[in-house]
Design a protein around this nucleic acid. Structure first.
Lengths: 111, 111
DNA sequence: GAGTCATATTAGTAGTGACTAATATGATTG
DNA sequence: CAATCATATTAGTCACTACTAATATGACTC
């Protein structure tokens, strides 16, 4: 599974939000995601495996617990691709177009 | 379909690469994608529709032709989400801080 | 207007991936 | 060691989405 496929799942995005703030045990993630998405422990565990396997999350053992932390390296491909695209279109955008884009941007609400 | 789902398809990513460099007629995109992915005109047209509907592409009529150009507004949600995540983990990870700042600078450049 | 070119739409199909239920593993506690 | 807690894995199912084939739309040309 590639980085874009990883990010296309809402449960995985929510999980990344959680572990980007601070390390969380699997059980803590399960609790939040279970409440918000109504899925099982098994489902969450499978998502965590994907995040591990694709370099988006690191795990630390703490007794029986597994503590998940974000691993920025998973985002490398995504960032590179987005930067590449920006590079191309940025060069052809003139000052006026840039102004218009600024207007659109400031209307957007942050999630 | 949300922005992350849009970017999770390789044909759509390739199409965005093409139209980010310069405007392309549908037929030109079909030719490239057909050669690289071995899919039909119909399939490409369906992808183009998705890119239109989700704000990733703008169309201009030129007689019977449809010329596609990139629309940066489709990327707003993705950029916002990634920025939000970076913001959280940036404080923890000093080594990455400079890299992130560079990324933010180039974000500003196109607004 | 008939024919052709360029693109879009529709209906139906197949493969992928997200899910649950059940079970396995492995650490802790009594 | 048995029981329990925390998490991972496996097998099987279902829904979604990307695809093809066929057809529709709409713009040029003769």
């Amino acid at each position: 599974m590639n980085a874009f496929d990883v990010l296309s799942d809402p449960v995985r995005r929510r999980t990344l939000e959680l572990i980007s703030q601070k390390e969380h045990a699997s059980g803590e993630i399960v609790k939040v995601v279970e409440a918000e998405f109504g899925i099982s422990q098994s489902a969450v565990s499978q998502h965590l495996r994907i995040l591990r396997d694709t370099g988006f999350a690191k795990v630390r053992k703490d007794g029986a617990k597994r503590c998940y932390e974000i691993d920025p390296s998973g985002f490398d491909d995504v960032n590179d691709w987005l930067d590449q695209l920006r590079h191309f279109w940025a060069s052809k955008m003139d000052a006026l177009a840039t102004e218009i884009e600024r207007g659109k941007q400031s209307d957007k609400a942050l999630r």
